[in-house]
Design a protein around this nucleic acid. Structure first.
Length: 305
DNA sequence: ATCCAGGAACTGT
DNA sequence: ACAGTTCATGGA
Protein backbone atom coordinates (compact mmCIF):
# COMPACT_ATOMS: atom_id res chain seq x y z
CA UNK A 1 0.00 0.00 0.00
CA UNK A 2 1.56 3.21 -1.22
CA UNK A 3 0.33 6.24 0.72
CA UNK A 4 1.32 9.43 2.52
CA UNK A 5 0.08 10.88 5.74
CA UNK A 6 -0.68 14.59 5.88
CA UNK A 7 -2.04 16.70 8.69
CA UNK A 8 -5.58 17.06 7.39
CA UNK A 9 -5.80 14.27 4.84
CA UNK A 10 -4.29 11.09 3.40
CA UNK A 11 -2.92 10.55 -0.07
CA UNK A 12 -3.18 7.10 -1.61
CA UNK A 13 -1.26 6.25 -4.76
CA UNK A 14 -3.21 3.58 -6.64
CA UNK A 15 -1.35 1.34 -9.08
CA UNK A 16 -2.04 1.70 -12.81
CA UNK A 17 -4.30 0.94 -14.47
CA UNK A 18 -6.85 2.69 -12.31
CA UNK A 19 -9.79 4.93 -13.14
CA UNK A 20 -11.48 6.68 -10.27
CA UNK A 21 -14.17 7.93 -12.69
CA UNK A 22 -15.08 4.38 -13.69
CA UNK A 23 -15.24 3.27 -10.07
CA UNK A 24 -17.43 6.27 -9.27
CA UNK A 25 -19.72 5.41 -12.17
CA UNK A 26 -20.27 2.02 -10.57
CA UNK A 27 -20.72 3.46 -7.09
CA UNK A 28 -23.24 5.94 -8.42
CA UNK A 29 -25.33 3.30 -10.21
CA UNK A 30 -28.30 3.53 -7.86
CA UNK A 31 -29.82 6.59 -6.25
CA UNK A 32 -31.24 4.27 -3.61
CA UNK A 33 -27.81 3.38 -2.26
CA UNK A 34 -27.47 4.58 1.31
CA UNK A 35 -24.14 3.09 2.40
CA UNK A 36 -22.17 5.68 0.48
CA UNK A 37 -22.95 8.96 -1.22
CA UNK A 38 -21.59 10.44 -4.44
CA UNK A 39 -21.68 14.22 -4.52
CA UNK A 40 -20.14 15.44 -7.76
CA UNK A 41 -16.57 14.20 -7.79
CA UNK A 42 -16.62 13.49 -4.08
CA UNK A 43 -17.41 10.21 -2.41
CA UNK A 44 -18.59 9.99 1.20
CA UNK A 45 -18.68 6.85 3.29
CA UNK A 46 -19.07 6.06 6.95
CA UNK A 47 -17.06 3.18 8.38
CA UNK A 48 -16.47 1.83 11.85
CA UNK A 49 -12.95 1.34 13.09
CA UNK A 50 -12.19 0.11 16.56
CA UNK A 51 -15.66 1.07 17.77
CA UNK A 52 -15.43 4.58 16.32
CA UNK A 53 -17.54 5.85 13.44
CA UNK A 54 -15.36 7.54 10.83
CA UNK A 55 -16.68 9.61 7.96
CA UNK A 56 -14.44 9.57 4.87
CA UNK A 57 -14.54 12.16 2.10
CA UNK A 58 -12.75 10.74 -0.91
CA UNK A 59 -11.64 12.52 -4.09
CA UNK A 60 -9.17 12.06 -6.90
CA UNK A 61 -6.64 14.73 -7.75
CA UNK A 62 -3.66 14.31 -10.08
CA UNK A 63 -3.72 10.52 -9.98
CA UNK A 64 -3.87 10.56 -6.19
CA UNK A 65 -6.76 9.44 -4.02
CA UNK A 66 -7.21 12.01 -1.30
CA UNK A 67 -9.08 11.08 1.85
CA UNK A 68 -10.30 13.71 4.27
CA UNK A 69 -11.99 13.25 7.63
CA UNK A 70 -14.74 15.88 7.85
CA UNK A 71 -15.58 14.89 11.40
CA UNK A 72 -11.95 15.34 12.41
CA UNK A 73 -10.42 11.93 13.08
CA UNK A 74 -6.67 11.95 13.44
CA UNK A 75 -5.28 8.91 15.21
CA UNK A 76 -2.54 7.02 13.45
CA UNK A 77 -4.30 3.71 13.92
CA UNK A 78 -7.48 4.98 12.29
CA UNK A 79 -5.54 6.36 9.35
CA UNK A 80 -3.85 3.05 8.74
CA UNK A 81 -7.14 1.18 8.91
CA UNK A 82 -8.75 3.70 6.60
CA UNK A 83 -6.07 3.09 3.99
CA UNK A 84 -6.53 -0.67 4.35
CA UNK A 85 -10.27 -0.25 3.90
CA UNK A 86 -10.00 1.79 0.72
CA UNK A 87 -7.33 -0.50 -0.67
CA UNK A 88 -9.68 -3.41 -0.27
CA UNK A 89 -12.81 -1.53 -1.34
CA UNK A 90 -11.23 -0.56 -4.69
CA UNK A 91 -9.25 -3.81 -5.07
CA UNK A 92 -6.01 -1.85 -5.32
CA UNK A 93 -3.68 -4.75 -4.53
CA UNK A 94 -4.70 -6.45 -7.78
CA UNK A 95 -2.37 -6.45 -10.76
CA UNK A 96 -4.80 -5.95 -13.65
CA UNK A 97 -2.20 -6.42 -16.37
CA UNK A 98 -2.78 -10.16 -16.84
CA UNK A 99 -6.54 -9.56 -17.11
CA UNK A 100 -6.07 -6.89 -19.73
CA UNK A 101 -3.64 -9.12 -21.64
CA UNK A 102 -6.06 -12.01 -21.87
CA UNK A 103 -8.83 -9.57 -22.83
CA UNK A 104 -7.01 -8.52 -25.97
CA UNK A 105 -7.78 -11.83 -27.65
CA UNK A 106 -11.31 -12.11 -26.24
CA UNK A 107 -14.17 -10.85 -28.38
CA UNK A 108 -16.42 -10.30 -25.35
CA UNK A 109 -13.95 -8.62 -23.03
CA UNK A 110 -11.98 -6.51 -25.51
CA UNK A 111 -14.61 -3.77 -26.01
CA UNK A 112 -15.53 -3.82 -22.32
CA UNK A 113 -11.96 -3.28 -21.22
CA UNK A 114 -11.53 -0.45 -23.70
CA UNK A 115 -14.72 1.26 -22.53
CA UNK A 116 -14.29 0.81 -18.81
CA UNK A 117 -10.50 0.98 -18.69
CA UNK A 118 -9.24 1.18 -15.13
CA UNK A 119 -12.41 -0.11 -13.50
CA UNK A 120 -11.70 -2.39 -10.56
CA UNK A 121 -14.06 -4.69 -8.70
CA UNK A 122 -15.73 -2.52 -6.09
CA UNK A 123 -15.80 -4.81 -3.10
CA UNK A 124 -17.87 -5.06 0.05
CA UNK A 125 -15.21 -5.28 2.74
CA UNK A 126 -17.83 -5.99 5.44
CA UNK A 127 -18.25 -9.76 5.21
CA UNK A 128 -21.71 -9.87 6.76
CA UNK A 129 -22.91 -7.03 4.60
CA UNK A 130 -21.78 -8.90 1.49
CA UNK A 131 -23.63 -12.05 2.54
CA UNK A 132 -26.74 -10.12 3.49
CA UNK A 133 -26.75 -8.09 0.29
CA UNK A 134 -26.43 -11.26 -1.78
CA UNK A 135 -29.36 -12.87 0.06
CA UNK A 136 -31.49 -9.74 -0.29
CA UNK A 137 -30.74 -9.73 -4.02
CA UNK A 138 -31.76 -13.31 -4.68
CA UNK A 139 -34.47 -13.63 -7.33
CA UNK A 140 -35.81 -10.09 -7.16
CA UNK A 141 -35.33 -6.88 -9.09
CA UNK A 142 -32.26 -4.97 -8.06
CA UNK A 143 -34.36 -1.89 -7.33
CA UNK A 144 -36.44 -3.81 -4.81
CA UNK A 145 -33.30 -5.30 -3.28
CA UNK A 146 -32.16 -1.72 -2.64
CA UNK A 147 -35.49 -0.95 -1.00
CA UNK A 148 -35.08 -3.92 1.33
CA UNK A 149 -31.52 -2.91 2.15
CA UNK A 150 -32.61 0.63 2.88
CA UNK A 151 -35.29 -0.59 5.30
CA UNK A 152 -32.88 -2.99 6.98
CA UNK A 153 -30.19 -0.35 7.40
CA UNK A 154 -32.54 2.41 8.57
CA UNK A 155 -34.25 0.09 11.03
CA UNK A 156 -31.24 -1.67 12.53
CA UNK A 157 -28.16 0.29 11.47
CA UNK A 158 -26.22 3.02 13.22
CA UNK A 159 -26.10 6.50 11.74
CA UNK A 160 -24.28 9.80 12.03
CA UNK A 161 -25.36 13.27 10.96
CA UNK A 162 -22.94 15.59 9.28
CA UNK A 163 -23.42 18.63 7.08
CA UNK A 164 -27.15 18.15 6.89
CA UNK A 165 -26.81 14.57 5.63
CA UNK A 166 -27.29 11.25 7.39
CA UNK A 167 -24.65 8.57 6.95
CA UNK A 168 -25.39 4.94 7.74
CA UNK A 169 -23.53 1.81 8.76
CA UNK A 170 -24.75 -1.63 7.82
CA UNK A 171 -26.16 -3.38 10.94
CA UNK A 172 -23.92 -5.75 12.86
CA UNK A 173 -24.45 -9.46 12.44
CA UNK A 174 -25.14 -9.72 16.17
CA UNK A 175 -28.01 -7.25 15.83
CA UNK A 176 -29.66 -9.15 12.97
CA UNK A 177 -28.93 -12.54 14.53
CA UNK A 178 -31.08 -11.63 17.51
CA UNK A 179 -34.16 -10.80 15.44
CA UNK A 180 -37.01 -13.14 14.69
CA UNK A 181 -38.55 -13.86 11.31
CA UNK A 182 -41.66 -11.76 11.90
CA UNK A 183 -39.63 -8.63 12.60
CA UNK A 184 -37.89 -8.93 9.24
CA UNK A 185 -41.12 -9.78 7.44
CA UNK A 186 -42.40 -6.37 8.51
CA UNK A 187 -39.72 -4.94 6.21
CA UNK A 188 -41.18 -7.13 3.44
CA UNK A 189 -38.51 -9.73 3.35
CA UNK A 190 -40.04 -13.06 2.45
CA UNK A 191 -40.12 -15.75 5.11
CA UNK A 192 -37.25 -17.49 3.35
CA UNK A 193 -35.06 -14.42 3.10
CA UNK A 194 -35.74 -13.61 6.74
CA UNK A 195 -34.75 -17.12 7.81
CA UNK A 196 -31.64 -17.12 5.65
CA UNK A 197 -30.54 -13.70 6.86
CA UNK A 198 -30.98 -14.51 10.54
CA UNK A 199 -29.17 -17.82 10.15
CA UNK A 200 -26.25 -16.25 8.34
CA UNK A 201 -26.11 -13.43 10.89
CA UNK A 202 -25.87 -15.96 13.70
CA UNK A 203 -23.13 -17.90 11.93
CA UNK A 204 -21.12 -14.71 11.53
CA UNK A 205 -21.76 -13.24 14.99
CA UNK A 206 -20.88 -16.46 16.81
CA UNK A 207 -17.68 -16.76 14.83
CA UNK A 208 -18.71 -20.06 13.26
CA UNK A 209 -17.91 -18.39 9.96
CA UNK A 210 -15.27 -15.67 9.70
CA UNK A 211 -13.76 -13.72 6.84
CA UNK A 212 -10.24 -14.43 8.06
CA UNK A 213 -10.81 -18.15 8.31
CA UNK A 214 -12.28 -18.32 4.81
CA UNK A 215 -9.59 -16.04 3.43
CA UNK A 216 -6.89 -18.37 4.73
CA UNK A 217 -8.16 -21.20 2.53
CA UNK A 218 -6.16 -21.55 -0.66
CA UNK A 219 -8.64 -23.24 -2.96
CA UNK A 220 -11.75 -21.46 -4.18
CA UNK A 221 -13.73 -24.68 -3.83
CA UNK A 222 -12.91 -24.94 -0.13
CA UNK A 223 -14.31 -21.47 0.47
CA UNK A 224 -17.31 -22.11 -1.73
CA UNK A 225 -18.17 -25.33 0.14
CA UNK A 226 -17.87 -23.62 3.50
CA UNK A 227 -20.20 -20.83 2.38
CA UNK A 228 -22.70 -23.19 0.79
CA UNK A 229 -22.98 -25.09 4.06
CA UNK A 230 -25.10 -22.15 5.24
CA UNK A 231 -28.80 -22.41 4.59
CA UNK A 232 -29.75 -19.84 1.97
CA UNK A 233 -26.32 -19.72 0.41
CA UNK A 234 -26.24 -21.49 -2.93
CA UNK A 235 -23.63 -21.44 -5.67
CA UNK A 236 -24.53 -17.95 -6.89
CA UNK A 237 -24.39 -16.36 -3.43
CA UNK A 238 -21.13 -18.11 -2.57
CA UNK A 239 -19.45 -16.89 -5.75
CA UNK A 240 -20.83 -13.39 -5.27
CA UNK A 241 -19.43 -13.17 -1.74
CA UNK A 242 -16.08 -14.56 -2.84
CA UNK A 243 -15.94 -11.92 -5.54
CA UNK A 244 -17.05 -8.96 -3.46
CA UNK A 245 -15.79 -9.68 0.04
CA UNK A 246 -13.00 -12.22 -0.20
CA UNK A 247 -10.98 -10.82 -3.09
CA UNK A 248 -11.21 -13.88 -5.32
CA UNK A 249 -11.21 -12.63 -8.92
CA UNK A 250 -11.70 -16.18 -10.15
CA UNK A 251 -15.12 -16.56 -8.48
CA UNK A 252 -17.74 -16.94 -11.19
CA UNK A 253 -21.49 -16.58 -10.48
CA UNK A 254 -22.24 -18.30 -13.76
CA UNK A 255 -25.99 -18.68 -13.31
CA UNK A 256 -26.47 -14.96 -12.74
CA UNK A 257 -29.38 -13.47 -14.68
CA UNK A 258 -27.61 -10.14 -15.18
CA UNK A 259 -24.57 -11.90 -16.53
CA UNK A 260 -26.75 -13.76 -19.02
CA UNK A 261 -28.38 -10.55 -20.19
CA UNK A 262 -25.04 -8.80 -20.55
CA UNK A 263 -23.64 -11.65 -22.63
CA UNK A 264 -26.75 -11.76 -24.75
CA UNK A 265 -26.22 -8.08 -25.50
CA UNK A 266 -22.49 -8.24 -26.08
CA UNK A 267 -22.75 -11.25 -28.37
CA UNK A 268 -25.76 -9.92 -30.21
CA UNK A 269 -27.72 -13.07 -29.50
CA UNK A 270 -31.47 -13.10 -29.86
CA UNK A 271 -31.70 -15.18 -26.71
CA UNK A 272 -29.89 -15.69 -23.44
CA UNK A 273 -26.78 -17.85 -23.67
CA UNK A 274 -27.01 -21.31 -22.16
CA UNK A 275 -24.99 -22.43 -19.17
CA UNK A 276 -22.77 -24.46 -21.47
CA UNK A 277 -22.15 -21.51 -23.76
CA UNK A 278 -21.18 -19.34 -20.80
CA UNK A 279 -18.80 -21.92 -19.42
CA UNK A 280 -17.28 -22.27 -22.87
CA UNK A 281 -16.66 -18.50 -23.10
CA UNK A 282 -15.26 -18.45 -19.58
CA UNK A 283 -12.53 -20.94 -20.44
CA UNK A 284 -10.59 -18.02 -21.83
CA UNK A 285 -11.07 -16.04 -18.62
CA UNK A 286 -9.34 -18.52 -16.34
CA UNK A 287 -8.46 -16.90 -13.04
CA UNK A 288 -10.36 -13.70 -13.96
CA UNK A 289 -13.94 -14.91 -14.23
CA UNK A 290 -15.03 -12.52 -11.50
CA UNK A 291 -13.48 -9.54 -13.25
CA UNK A 292 -15.08 -10.56 -16.53
CA UNK A 293 -18.43 -10.79 -14.72
CA UNK A 294 -17.95 -7.39 -13.11
CA UNK A 295 -17.16 -5.69 -16.42
CA UNK A 296 -20.18 -7.41 -17.98
CA UNK A 297 -22.41 -6.14 -15.16
CA UNK A 298 -20.97 -2.69 -15.75
CA UNK A 299 -22.03 -2.89 -19.40
CA UNK A 300 -25.65 -3.42 -18.35
CA UNK A 301 -26.33 0.02 -16.96
CA UNK A 302 -24.36 1.89 -19.57
CA UNK A 303 -24.40 -0.02 -22.86
CA UNK A 304 -21.45 0.32 -25.17
CA UNK A 305 -22.34 2.52 -28.12
C1' DA B 1 -52.70 -9.60 -16.96
C1' DT B 2 -48.44 -12.16 -17.49
C1' DC B 3 -43.68 -12.79 -16.94
C1' DC B 4 -39.46 -12.42 -14.78
C1' DA B 5 -36.11 -10.73 -11.49
C1' DG B 6 -28.11 -10.14 -10.00
C1' DG B 7 -31.85 -18.04 -6.51
C1' DA B 8 -32.30 -21.63 -3.22
C1' DA B 9 -34.55 -25.34 -0.88
C1' DC B 10 -37.43 -28.94 -1.28
C1' DT B 11 -39.52 -33.00 -3.58
C1' DG B 12 -39.74 -36.89 -6.46
C1' DT B 13 -37.40 -39.82 -9.60
C1' DA C 1 -27.22 -36.50 -10.07
C1' DC C 2 -31.11 -34.28 -12.13
C1' DA C 3 -35.48 -31.93 -13.37
C1' DG C 4 -39.67 -29.98 -11.71
C1' DT C 5 -41.99 -27.24 -8.02
C1' DT C 6 -42.49 -23.81 -4.47
C1' DC C 7 -41.51 -19.59 -2.39
C1' DA C 8 -43.49 -14.62 -2.95
C1' DT C 9 -43.50 -9.70 -4.54
C1' DG C 10 -42.44 -5.48 -7.14
C1' DG C 11 -41.96 -3.65 -11.71
C1' DA C 12 -42.42 -3.48 -16.74
Amino acid sequence: MNWNDHINYLELHPPEPFSFEECMAFLNRSDKEILHRCEGDHLFKLIKIDGQTILMKIMYINKVIRVEFPMGETSKFIREKTVEYIWEWFDLQRDLVPFYQLSESDKVLKPLVENFYGLRIIGIPDFFEALAWAILGQQILLSFAYTLKERLVKTYGESVEWGGETYWLFPDASEIGNLNVDELKKLQLTTRKAEYLIGVAQAVSTGALTKDQLGSLTEDMQIKSALMALRGVGAWTADYVMMKALGRPSAFPVGDAGLQNALKQQLGLGRKPTLNEMNELAKNWSGWEGYATFYLWRSLYEPIV
